[in-house]
């Protein structure tokens, strides 16, 4: 197995993707991709349409079972290579390490990736609970912390004081995030009624309500106007600043990528073609040729080929 990628430098990794491959029938959507996302950083995954970015996310968050590869997530601090190998060999989906714990995401079902490994995500096509209010959306996200005493917790059923306290905590957290995304005024409106930009931010706030260590955002700036886009940047930077949450980001909007990411991974046709700081990637001839430098008409050809 490849060791942890040196690109992340001295920073402790939070997620190590090792030789990840995903096949759909004959189509290889992700082909032997390895990279490392560092703790406390914003890692961007970029690439043309159909490059396999979303598929990588789906593998990380357990929605797809990868055809091959290892996805290791570290709680507390990075595991040593020995610890990593020990857990891999054990056949279990997680193990304790000196620094904390280590989860092999490819072995966890999707809801456990969220609840145990604490990886949260948003979706390329927004998936809010559109018939529920903004506030309800944020409360649903706190399901796991509120159901530790069981789904049919008697204290909750009888509305005992201990439960009311817990409920209050959940409410406070929801209000905190409402404030962060500036939607306090719309707390009682159905989520489906919000403008697009607000929905994007609400989806991020909802993901944050699960207390994630890693937040995966699939094209959060898609379809936003410049003002909304700026607000989004600010939100992401504040998440990185104020919370112990690292961010993995898919983005087409290069201004967002360059502005907020610390580290960029470039995919093309399922393969990784570059990996480094925004500056390095920006000047990488392969990237320029294949992605940043593609002319308008050529881009159309590429899109047609990919069937996007």
């Amino acid at each position: 197995m490849a060791s942890l990628d040196p690109v992340a430098g001295a920073r402790a990794p939070i997620l190590a993707v090792d030789h990840l491959s995903m096949r759909f029938g004959g189509l290889i959507a992700v082909n032997d991709v390895s990279f490392v996302a560092a703790r406390g950083e914003v890692t961007a995954v970029i690439g043309p349409n159909g490059a396999g970015k979303t598929t990588v996310f789906n593998c990380i968050t357990g929605f797809y079972k990868p055809s091959a590869g290892r996805l290791a997530l570290f709680h507390g601090g990075a595991a040593t290579p020995d610890e990593l190998d020990a857990v891999t060999a054990s056949g279990l989906s997680w193990g304790r390490t000196g620094a904390g714990a280590l989860y092999l995401l490819e072995r966890l079902p999707d809801h456990k990736v969220a609840s145990w490994a604490r990886v949260a995500r948003t979706f390329q096509n927004i998936r809010l609970f559109s018939g529920m209010t903004v506030l309800e959306n944020l409360l649903v996200a706190q399901h796991m912390s509120l159901t530790s005493a069981g789904l049919l917790n008697p204290a909750a059923l009888l509305n005992l004081p201990s439960w009311k306290r817990q409920q209050k905590g959940a409410m406070d957290k929801a209000l905190y995030w409402l404030d962060q995304i500036g939607l306090m005024e719309r707390a009682d409106d159905p989520a489906g009624d919000l403008p697009y930009g607000d929905q994007r931010r609400l989806e991020i706030a909802r993901a944050m309500c699960t207390n994630p260590v890693l937040l995966c955002l699939d094209e959060p700036a898609a379809g936003l106007n410049p003002r909304e886009s700026a607000a989004l940047n600010e939100l992401l930077l504040s998440i990185r600043r104020d919370h112990d949450t690292s961010i993995l980001l898919i983005e087409h909007d290069m201004s967002v990528v360059m502005e907020i990411s610390d580290h960029v991974v470039v995919l093309e046709y399922g393969c990784k073609i570059a990996d480094g700081t925004p500056q390095e990637v920006r000047t990488d001839p392969k990237v320029i040729a294949s992605y940043l430098g593609v002319e308008e008409d050529e881009a159309a050809v590429v899109e047609a080929e990919v069937g996007a």
């Binding site: 969220a114 949260a120 699960t210």
Partner: peptide, 9 residues
Amino acid sequence: IACRSLGIN
């Protein structure tokens, strides 16, 4: 799907 992404079994 959104439920599962929030850790709901």
